[in-house]
């Protein structure tokens, strides 16, 4: 899943980028409101982390404009402002959640996953098909109770395909959803990742889980 971090603190931006990337998210990060709007207009982010005190364009203004422009991203506000008025204002302007700084990374991760579940209309924290179960919040995957060792990127692909179960996902779409904008890799990396994922699933007898429709994309039926 692709996430946009809008945060002017360079250190926090970097720490969150490392943490979320390592947790399997594709992370783009910007430091001001104008860049944030440009990214929101160019890409469909499922989840956005938004600081309120931003240079050039205030976070609340970014929120207002993005909702006026009908961007569907779930927006989680990260702010040092802790008054009830600030929270109410942000939520009334279209924020989906509000987290006051400082926060625990685990809580942030949990809230991002909760937002993702809501966005994909998923009620339970786990995604399952047959003997395979994955828990995006915990970052774990199991087949018949046995842990499946996946890289963050492999986990991201599996999670994305399970969330879009029954829908064909093109290679480009998977790449856009899971790799950051500033990556040097091409979308061929998706094939490599899926190939590695299939091998790991095969070891547990689920090698046929991901179906490849040549020239069209991949799906889990």
């Amino acid at each position: 899943m692709r996430i946009l971090i809008i945060e002017d603190s360079e250190k926090l931006r970097r720490a969150l980028t490392i943490g979320l990337s390592s947790s399997g998210f594709a992370v783009d990060a910007v430091a001001d409101g104008e860049q944030a709007l440009a990214h929101l207009r160019a890409h469909a982010y499922p989840v956005v982390l938004l600081d309120l005190m931003l240079p050039r364009l205030d976070g609340l203004e970014v929120l207002r404009i993005s909702r006026n422009e009908q961007h569907q991203a779930a927006i989680l506000v990260l702010s040092a402002r802790d008054s009830v008025l600030d929270r109410v204002t942000a939520i009334n302007l279209g924020a989906d959640d509000y987290l006051v700084k400082p926060f625990a990374f685990d809580e942030l991760l949990a809230r991002i996953n909760a937002l993702a579940r809501r966005r994909f209309e998923q009620r339970t924290p786990e995604l399952a098909i047959g003997l395979l179960t994955i828990n995006p919040a915990a970052g774990t995957a199991k087949i018949d109770g046995h842990a499946l060792a996946l890289t963050p990127r492999e986990f991201g692909v599996l999670e994305l395909m399970l969330r879009a179960r029954g829908r064909l996902l093109s290679r480009a779409l998977i790449f856009q959803s899971l790799w950051p904008l500033n990556t040097d890799a091409s979308d061929k990396v998706v094939e490599v990742t899926i190939s590695q994922l299939r091998r790991k699933l095969q070891a547990h007898g689920m090698g046929e889980l991901i179906v490849n429709r040549r020239g069209l994309g991949y799906l889990i039926e």
Partner: peptide, 24 residues
């Protein structure tokens, strides 16, 4: 309170992430 929250968030996030992903 306001100006110290962001640096505190920086410190806490860096500690959390360094503990969780020491290679990164």
């Amino acid at each position: 309170a306001h100006e110290l929250r962001t640096p505190l968030a920086e410190i806490r996030s860096m500690i959390d992430i360094s503990t969780r992903f020491p290679n990164e």
